[in-house]
Amino acid sequence: MLCEKCKQNKATVHVTKIQNNSKMEVHLCEECARKSEDMSFENPFTINNFLTGLLDSVQSSPIKVDYIKTTTCSKCGMSYGKFKQLGRLGCSDCYKTFNEKLMPLIKNVHGSQQHTGKIPKKEGSVIRLKRDIMNMRKDLRRAIDKEEFERAAQLRDKIKLLEKDLEIDN
């Protein structure tokens, strides 16, 4: 069988594609197959570039043309284009550098943008304090809704104390 594209070499690559429920068979020689966009062997499909494929589709604002070229992480030198290609960030600062692109992606993948789990023991005391205050404020609102005013007053006082601690820590 000859290659369907160049019609010169022997077809050695046989691909069955299923698109919209219809089956399609393609027979190509190795060279044409390599060039063919349908099955780019040069860029194998990985979870990483699948993920970054979502990058520009999930965000709401239109992409600025020069974002890809100019946005580069100052700490590790990772460019947005490189990140899109690798699917991996270069350092912790990349999260800030590419924040506007990353956050919608993270939301899309995890359904959330807020970490609620473990906080580092040693470094996390301030964060832990902030989280405690946040949770207490929620409790306070609930208490007020339920008209449990005594409990609300207690919570309010506790929050005030913790907020003082936070000021000292900062």
Binding site: L105, I106, H115, E123
Partner: peptide, 17 residues
């Protein structure tokens, strides 16, 4: 570690916990 998104990982699919 980031206050909002938690433990920072090279791939955003692992971020958080």
């Amino acid at each position: 570690f980031d206050e909002n998104v938690g433990y920072l990982t090279s791939c955003p699919t692992n971020v958080g916990t």
